[in-house]
């Protein structure tokens, strides 16, 4: 199982393609069920909230339960703790280097 982190800090309003996201999620949950441990969404901009509400209507309950939208300070602390500071890159509050 893997943990997904989606950083939306640099996304723009024009880049939102809800249809592509729905297709992507549906593909992954149909062909790779149970491969996702958790999916964290960071820095979700306000204009993405309504898009996410629509996208989530098309996702399975089991998938949605794994998605965590990190917005508050408490959620951020839990996110860092669950990934582990050793693994999490510095820009997300950990101590690791981000190496492709």
């Amino acid at each position: 199982k893997l943990i997904g982190i989606l950083d939306l800090a640099n996304i723009g309003y024009r880049n939102i393609d809800a249809r592509a996201l729905i297709t992507g999620f549906q593909f992954l949950q149909a062909y790779y069920p149970e491969r996702l441990a958790k999916f964290y969404i960071l820095s979700m901009p306000w204009f993405f909230v309504s898009a996410w509400k629509m996208i989530s209507l098309f996702l399975e309950k089991a998938t949605l339960e794994k998605v965590v939208i990190v917005s508050s300070q408490d959620e951020r602390k839990t996110f860092i703790k669950e990934i582990g500071e050793e693994t999490l890159p510095e820009e997300y509050g950990g101590r690791a280097k981000l190496i492709a």
């Binding site: 893997l2 943990i3 800090a9 640099n10 996304i11 996201l21 693994t87 999490l88 890159p89 190496i99």
Partner: peptide
């Protein structure tokens, strides 16, 4: 998924790989 940068950090605290997707103007 045409994201700007995709990273795979291995392993996390409990041994699970971590996939990091940084979205930008090419997303999704």
């Amino acid at each position: 998924l045409k994201a700007k940068k995709i990273y795979l950090q291995v392993p996390s605290k409990n041994g699970q790989p971590v996939l990091i997707i940084q979205a930008n103007k090419h997303f999704p």
